[in-house]
Amino acid sequence: MKRIKSILLLVALPLLGIAQTKEQALQAVKERKGWYIGAGIFQSIQTTHWKYDQTPPALGVPFYNSADGFSHDVGRTLLAIGIEKKSIFGTPQLRDGIFVGNYDYHGNYLGSTYSPIYNFVDFDFGADVLFNPSAKTTADWLSDDNNQISSGGITVGASAYIRAQWVFFLSPKLRMTVLSTAVGAQYLYISNNGKGVVSQPLVPDFNYSKGWNEKIATLYFAVGTLGFETSKFSITPEVRVFSLGTSSTTLKPERLIGDVKMDDRPSVVTYGIKVLKKF
């Protein structure tokens, strides 16, 4: 009998953890509102696409079909300092629970029951300052594996967004973000030192060795899940998919008549996590 009681207690502990009154839930929703500040880290996978109008090439420039364009891999690990205003549209309406579908062992639907788990949808506004002290750049248009065209250079930028979050209460002091979506904009300034290890004879005519800068401005859509919040902290993981963007560069190959221009929109996917504290 004692063993049965112990098993029942272990089963009941998770239920006791989420037990709370509606008044406690409402108070927690109000406490969520406010300003937060913190830091994060993001891995950004980026490729810029370029072309120059010079076909056939100028006298003395090795043949390269510039009409096909060329690209650079400028992926970066970005450190972020962020600020966020939670519940910008005021205290959201609390939902008393959800209907949960029930299924047997074979997957047959047995109907639904009402689960008194409090949840709500809220809207936040945030902004980040992004930074990377050094990272390499490679030329995707080179056929061999030895395609590093820059060994370092600072990267700085900023982003701003509005996020909608579907939040569930796990306890009076702990909440979980089941799903979040955001729309935002991001700008990056990427400096390249041009200290590469490429040995192909065509590369010097691209003038990489003197260094150059690239700028990427994009609008993005972000999706996040399994975030957590307490009365003072929030942890938000997300993936940002960039749908609209533009880029520019100061790169100017030797003996080039004209400028290097964007051949296609930059391709960018960013994922990471931020930890914020209320102040």
Rank of each mutant, 00 (worst) to 15 (best):
L16H: 08
R32G: 09
Y189D: 08
S6Y: 11
P57Q: 13
L202A: 11
P116K: 13
Y36E: 02
L26Q: 11
K86V: 02
A158I: 10
Q27S: 13
I81P: 05
L276M: 15
A127P: 00
N119V: 02
F120S: 07
K278G: 02
F221S: 12
V239A: 04
A80M: 05
D68Y: 11
V241D: 02
N207W: 01
T138P: 01
D264H: 12
F131T: 05
E254Q: 12
P116R: 07
K278T: 05
A25Q: 00
A19I: 02
F120E: 03
E229R: 15
V269H: 04
I154R: 09
A222C: 07
F63V: 14
Y161N: 02
P14T: 08
F42P: 07
M176R: 14
L188H: 01
R255A: 11
W35S: 12
K252G: 02
G258E: 07
I257D: 08
T47P: 02
T250Q: 09
A158N: 06
Q93R: 15
P116C: 03
T113L: 10
D259G: 04
D259R: 12
D96L: 01
Y271H: 09
N108P: 00
G224D: 10
F221A: 14
K274R: 12
E214N: 01
A80Y: 00
T177K: 12
E229D: 04
A67Q: 11
V11Y: 01
L244G: 10
I37S: 15
F42S: 13
V167W: 00
G194I: 15
G17S: 13
G111M: 04
D104E: 04
L130N: 02
S44A: 15
T250Y: 07
R3L: 06
L78C: 13
V241F: 10
I149F: 04
R76E: 03
R175T: 05
L202Y: 06
A160P: 01
R255K: 15
G107Q: 03
S112N: 04
N108M: 08
E238I: 08
P62D: 14
V203I: 06
M1I: 03
P201F: 08
R240G: 02
Y220G: 03
Y187L: 06
I154H: 07
L244S: 10
A25I: 00
T21D: 03
P204G: 09
Y36M: 09
W141L: 06
G196A: 06
G224K: 03
T47M: 09
T230G: 14
A67N: 14
K51D: 08
S231T: 12
D68A: 11
T55R: 11
I216P: 01
S248L: 03
G60H: 06
V121E: 05
F42G: 14
G258D: 10
K232H: 09
R32Q: 10
I41E: 04
S150Q: 13
N192P: 03
V100R: 14
E214A: 01
A58Q: 13
T47E: 09
F89K: 13
A182P: 02
G126C: 09
G34P: 08
L26V: 13
Q93C: 02
A217W: 09
D73K: 06
L94M: 12
A80T: 05
V129G: 14
D144W: 04
R175P: 00
